[in-house]
Structures are given as C-alpha cells and as structure tokens.
Amino acid sequence: MLKIKEDLKNELQLFKQRELPTSVFALIIDGYHCEVKDNSKVKQATCYIVLGIDLEGKKDIFGIYTFFGKENKADWMKVFEDLITRGLKEVLIVISDDFPGIIDAVKLAYPLADHQLCFVHLQRNVRKHMTKEDASAFNKSLDKIKISSSDFDEAVLKFKELCDEYLAKYPRFYCCNIRKSRVLFCLYEIPRGIKKAYLYHKRR
C-alpha cells in the first residue's frame, strides 16, 4: 500500500512538472470550489483547472492546482505563471467564466490572446439578475444571436440592441454586459468552422 501511494505521488509530481507545448489554440479554465482536509481540519479550497486544445483539436489537461480560500485573481496569476514556466508562451484564445479579475489576469499573462467569456455563465447571470419571465426571453434572444450572427460586428450590434430593451429595468446589469460585449463575442472574429467547435463550451 505504501509503495502504491508513493508511486502515485511520483506520477502526480511528474504530471505537475511536465513540459507544455509552446503554443496552443485555446485554454479553457475554471475554478471548482471544494473542501480539502489539512491535517485534522477541513478547509474551504478552490481547484483551478486548465484544459488545453492544440491546433489539431486535441485536448489535454495542462494543470490542476489547489489553493486554500476562495477563487481569486492572485491564485490565477500563480497558475498562469506556472504554465508559462513550463513552456506555454502563446495562446490564441482563453475561454472562462466571468469571475471578477479574470479578464485582467488573462491580459497580464497572455496579452496577445483573445478572451471569450462562457455563454452558459452569462445565461446563469441573466437568471440571477432578471425576473424569471425577462430572463427566459433574454436568453432565448441570446441563443438566436449566437446562431444567426455571421460575424463579430453583427453579433455585438444585435447584443446591444437586445440589452437596450432592458436598460430601463436593469441599468447596472446593462452597463456591465455592454462593457464586456467584446469578450462575450470574440469567437466571432475566428473563422466559422473553428468557432462552431468551441462556441458552446459548458462546464464539466
């Protein structure tokens, strides 16, 4: 049993230290909140998960990092620093939820990368900030925009027109979404065939 445990620890260490490719098409990142036993105490922790997709569409887990406490920008920066140290220098696009500070963290780590916020998380936020009836109508319209828009400018324009309909009732939510419209639809600046494969990213 001790040998098996030691072998697993060695394999995990090799996994954490392995060299990464110099460039990838996409990184899909997310934080999973959990509880971890630390000696005799159980503490709140966040598991930071990074999935890489190369230019041929092959997926690989680049890293799993656990830090005590809630998800935060400083720990995401530690994750990105480790990825860069292990060789990952260039990323075409990063896909994430809308965690506060993540946009700045991505820009600091990979300034040339595009950043796409997850539509699933956007629709969840809509349900949190709007009435049930309004949220249902908004998300149905959002689905139509995703399907029917042919390019970035068209998608952003349609999204603004949709948000304008709800400005009077939800001014704060409106301003937040309008400011982030470029990172909500940046996948539309990528060729349509590639965009289709990654547009509907969902959590595990």
Rank of each mutant, 00 (worst) to 15 (best):
C176A: 14
C176N: 11
A135Q: 05
L122C: 04
C118S: 09
S136L: 14
K169Y: 11
C118P: 08
K158W: 12
L157I: 08
I145V: 07
K146E: 12
C118D: 04
K140G: 12
Q116E: 05
Y166D: 09
L167I: 10
V126A: 10
I147M: 13
K78Y: 04
A109H: 10
V156W: 04
K144Y: 09
D151N: 15
K160P: 00
F152D: 05
V94I: 15
M130K: 06
L112K: 15
Y170I: 04
A137C: 12
D164W: 07
E161W: 06
V91N: 03
V91G: 00
F159N: 01
F173I: 07
I93N: 00
K158P: 00
F138D: 08
F138G: 06
Y110E: 07
S149D: 10
K158S: 09
F152A: 07
A155R: 02
I84P: 04
L117E: 01
C175Y: 14
C175I: 10
D151G: 06
F80P: 00
L108D: 13
F80S: 03
D98A: 12
E90S: 07
S150V: 13
D97F: 12
A109C: 12
A137Q: 14
I103S: 14
H121T: 09
V106R: 04
I103N: 14
V79Y: 10
L108R: 09
K132C: 10
D98K: 08
F152P: 03
C176K: 14
D151E: 08
K144V: 02
K128W: 12
E133M: 10
K89P: 05
L92H: 06
R179E: 09
L122W: 06
M77R: 11
R179N: 13
K146T: 00
S136I: 11
F138R: 09
